[in-house]
Design a protein around this nucleic acid. Structure first.
Length: 886
DNA sequence: CATGGGTGTCATAAA
DNA sequence: ATTTTATGACACCCA
């Protein structure tokens, strides 16, 4: 309940902030909490806040409850979101991208866990939001000024389809991921439910959401048109022109999926898609690279570093998944990929149904001769590409740790060149092109990978990429981004990043061989293995993401921290079993801030660039703050690890005396396992026990284990200096036969056994229990403080992100107002022109100020008096019509 | 000496 | 009923 209160309070605060920020979405940071089934399952709570909650969630989830407990508290946020919709409606028709994302995720998630989603997902998410809006919005614009162009539409469309295809493919390939995906799907569903999104979306899987969105957009557009017409009645010609265009568009893509039909109103979808894609690449990639660069630069220790790490880790995981053979396959596929570059959108974006056609089209182009081209293979290959791209990148990054940045950069740049310039580089082309394609996806991939991981994260990821993408587009392309990239993107990104981090951390912290062995012995291996896999995937994906050296370093630090801290957070009940889970949980809590920062970082580069308001500085500062904090933690932990050997006295006494060495050994082992880095000194002692230990550990033990490592690592300094020294002193005074660590960290049962094995006086028992209580409370306090700090940082990030979003909205609003004014001006001009040709019954010119043109349903036009509103006998309807037609 | 941050501990509530 | 966890509050230490 406490957390709920906390969350609620925080949520209220955010709400207030959001409201103050012109009704931006509130759910941003909270969403991750809402329904992250999969995420929670594996990683643990996104935010540092709730281990307990997390457990609760798990329990409830296990119980089959779809909704996250917090969702109830978050109702207010949903309301806020609706308000957001209103804000969005100001400039553009809005399609709740959350729905789109959900839809996409569902399609994607089933098949694709991590990397597969790629840009397609990203763009799908972004495009999903935009497409419907823009497609119709375009009509409006055409009607009005034809200002906006369809780049985005095509791109978005493509991604959506692509995502679907990819998903299907991946489903075949990866079963495990499917499970995760399923979880993700559930999470999305839950989320959507929580958000109050019509259940039809997920219930009907793919298309309904888009249709709903399209409907919404269309309705909103129609409303806008109506308003415009009311204010400035349109001529029949204009109306016809608009409708005719719509119809034409609808007819042009007859065979397409409904979604496409809705989305794509423009001629050849493929061509458009390509064009759009390229345009997007042209627009996006440079910025992406910049973003990456910025991220990398910042990555040094900052939150970004953390987030990047997560991403990188995700990529790494993918890479791990993808075997070298797969990489080879990728290389083989390179030409095909290259073709992708030429028609990037096709492969990635084309819907599964159309994929074959597209692949054939690609083949026809002749760029591809390889067997990969086969339609049947096309999909799988594509999936490979998706899955493998990251792996490759990852592999590259891994192989050349230092070169990761450059490598990625090169890839990006080359990819851009290839995609844009179309100039292929024969040998390296495949990779480059692939990289380029991948790179174009990089942002999305990073996000996607998490998305694949599951739960709300996917949405966040999707949104985040979209947001980033949108941001770029926005800058480059005036309004197109529009409101679509909402605050939620930022927040979601943060949340996603957090999740990512958690996964990454878990993975990294993860599993040393010792850990694995232990787990196996203990029987936790299965769950952990699954986690590892997921984590590994995450890592791969992360690795795939362009990780600069700085990032790598930061990641390392983070890992260390995570390990150390992971032990702390490892306290988290359920997941504590597996070190990874622990690390993950901790990472989640710990990383939540960092992740948020990362998210902000990811966002920040774009958004910051977009948003001038100097928010960047603030963000950067925040990032740095986080980084520093993390570094400090690491240092502390390391310090503790190095210096913090527990007094051997305690251990030694215990070993001989204690009947079950298991406990001691296991304990030590566990500690070691968790804190690989800093515990080593201890590990040496405990190491021998490794083999012995495992049989007995239960969850509780694991918990304790988790707790211990952290406790040691973080607390060691402190411990030596104070706490332990204090309790140790007490223990010594009380002549306790075993170490404080055992007292504190042993599971209850083992602890009781330990006490039973020794004949302790009443005072000693009290002392032991006090020591245990204090030790646990100390750890709890540490975790609590960390959590609090993370939450604070996250909130800061959210604030900065919301500010950026607000500034963007204001800019968009201004632009929309300008456009509206321009339209009004044009309309008034048109009116003047029309009335200049009109004459009343007496042959006198009509005053446009006094009369209105009324468009009848039958197509006729009448002149009405503005004042009376009564339709005057139209003197020259035919003429008017002619004029209009002209 | 005052101040802020970090830490441990206690008390309490909740799970 | 017991144990564990989370958290606010307090005190202490240190820079």
């Amino acid at each position: 309940m406490l957390y709920l209160k906390k969350y609620l309070t925080e949520g209220l605060i955010q709400m207030a902030i959001l409201l103050s920020l012109c009704g931006v979405r509130v759910d941003m940071g909270l969403e991750p909490y809402l329904a992250p089934p999969w995420h929670d399952m594996i990683l643990g709570p996104t935010s540092l806040l709730t281990q307990t909650q997390f457990h609760n969630l798990r329990n409830r989830m296990e119980d089959g409850q779809a909704l996250h407990p917090k969702s109830v508290d978050l109702d207010g946020f949903f309301t806020t979101r609706r308000l957001l919709g209103l804000v969005r409606s100001l400039n553009r028709l809005q399609v709740p991208h959350s729905e789109v994302e959900t839809w996409l995720v569902q399609r994607d998630t089933d098949p694709l866990p991590l990397g597969c989603t790629d840009l397609s997902l990203e763009r799908a998410a972004a495009g999903g939001e935009r497409e419907p809006v823009e497609s119709r919005a375009v009509v409006l614009h055409e009607e009005e000024e034809e200002e906006e162009e369809d780049h985005e539409e095509g791109t978005h469309h493509v991604p959506i389809h692509h995502s679907g295809a990819v998903e299907e493919e991946e489903e075949e390939e990866e079963e495990k991921e499917d499970v995760d995906d399923d979880d993700d799907d559930e999470g999305h569903l839950r989320r959507t439910e929580g958000r109050g999104i019509p259940g039809g979306l997920y219930s009907h899987a793919n298309r309904e959401p888009t249709q709903n969105e399209a409907d919404q957009t269309s309705s909103s557009i129609q409303e806008c048109l109506r308003l415009l017409e009311e204010t400035f009645p349109l001529t029949e010609e204009q109306l016809h022109d608009v409708e005719g265009r719509r119809e034409d568009l609808a007819h042009q893509s007859p065979g397409r999926e409904p979604l496409l039909s809705q989305i794509n109103h423009h001629g050849n979808p493929l061509l458009e898609m390509e064009l759009d894609w390229q345009d997007l690449l042209a627009i996006m990639e440079p910025e992406n690279t910049e973003v990456d660069m910025t991220q990398h630069s910042r990555a040094t220790g900052t939150l970004q570093g953390v987030g990047c790490e997560d991403l990188n880790q995700n990529y790494n995981n993918h890479g791990r998944r993808v075997t070298e053979a797969d990489q080879e396959v990728l290389l083989m596929d390179a030409p095909w990929q290259h073709s992708l570059l030429r028609s990037p959108a096709l492969l990635a974006l084309t819907p599964s149904a159309e994929l074959d056609d597209h692949s054939s089209a690609v083949n026809t182009r002749g760029t591809l001769t390889s067997s990969n081209v086969n339609p049947s293979q096309g999909l799988p290959n594509h999936t490979h590409l998706l899955a493998k791209d990251p792996s490759e990148d990852f592999g590259m990054g891994l192989n050349t740790e230092d070169g990761t940045t450059t490598f990625n950069m090169n890839l990006l740049t080359q990819g851009l060149d290839d995609t844009i310039g179309g100039g292929p580089c024969p040998s390296s082309e495949s990779r480059l092109s692939f990289d380029a394609t991948f790179h174009s996806r990089d942002l999305p991939l990073s996000r996607l990978s998490p998305s694949s991981e599951g739960n709300g994260m996917t949405e966040d990821l999707l949104t985040s990429p979209s947001s980033v993408f949108l941001v770029d587009e926005e800058e480059n392309i005036a309004n197109e981004d529009g409101l679509l990239s909402p605050l939620s993107d930022f927040l979601e990104d943060a949340a996603i990043l957090d999740d990512m981090r958690l996964l990454d951390l878990a993975l990294e912290d993860g599993f040393s061989p010792e850990m694995a062995t232990r787990l196996e012995e203990e029987g936790f291996l299965d769950s952990r293995m699954a986690e590892q896999e997921t984590v590994g995937k995450d890592e791969d994906s992360n690795s795939v993401t362009p990780a600069t050296e700085d990032q790598g370093q930061s990641t390392i630090h983070l890992k260390d921290e995570e390990e150390e801290e992971g032990s702390d957070s490892g306290l988290s009940l359920d997941f504590s079993h597996s070190p990874a889970s622990q690390s993950a949980s901790e990472a989640s809590s710990y990383s939540s801030s960092s992740s948020s920062s990362c998210a902000s970082a990811v966002e920040s580069p774009f958004s910051e660039e977009e948003d001038e308001e100097g928010e960047e500085d603030s963000v950067g500062s925040e990032m740095e703050m986080e980084v520093t904090i993390k570094q400090e933690d690491l240092e502390e932990e390391e310090m503790g690890a190095v210096g913090g050997g527990y007094p051997e006295d305690f251990k030694n006494p215990f070993l001989p005396t204690f009947g079950d060495h298991k406990l001691y050994n296991g304990f030590s082992l566990e500690n070691i396992g968790h804190d690989h880095t800093y515990n080593q000194p201890l590990s040496s002692d405990s190491s021998p026990s490794l083999g012995k230990m495992p049989t007995k550990h239960t969850k509780s033990s694991s918990r304790h284990d988790n707790a211990k490592p952290y406790h040691r690592s973080s607390s060691r300094r402190i411990t030596e200096s104070r706490m332990w020294s204090r309790d140790e002193r007490r223990a010594r005074v009380g002549k306790l036969p075993f170490s404080n660590e055992l007292i504190v960290n042993l599971p209850v049962e083992e602890f009781n056994d330990l006490l039973a094995n020794y004949q302790l006086s009443e005072e000693q028992l009290i002392l032991v229990r006090d020591i245990r209580r204090r030790g646990k409370n100390k750890i709890a306090a540490q975790n609590c403080r960390k959590r609090r700090l993370d939450v604070l940082l996250e909130l800061k990030d959210n604030v900065s992100g919301l500010r950026r979003y607000r500034s963007r909205l204001l800019r968009e609003k201004q632009e929309a107002m300008r456009n509206l004014q321009e339209m009004k001006h044009q309309l008034s001009t048109l009116y003047q022109d029309v009335f200049s040709t009109l004459r009343d019954n007496e042959g006198m010119p009509l005053d446009s100020m006094e009369h209105l043109l009324q468009f009848e349903s039958n197509g006729s036009v009448t002149i009405a008096s503005r004042q009376q509103g009564a339709a005057l006998p139209r003197t020259k309807p035919s003429k008017k019509q002619r004029d209009k037609k002209k």
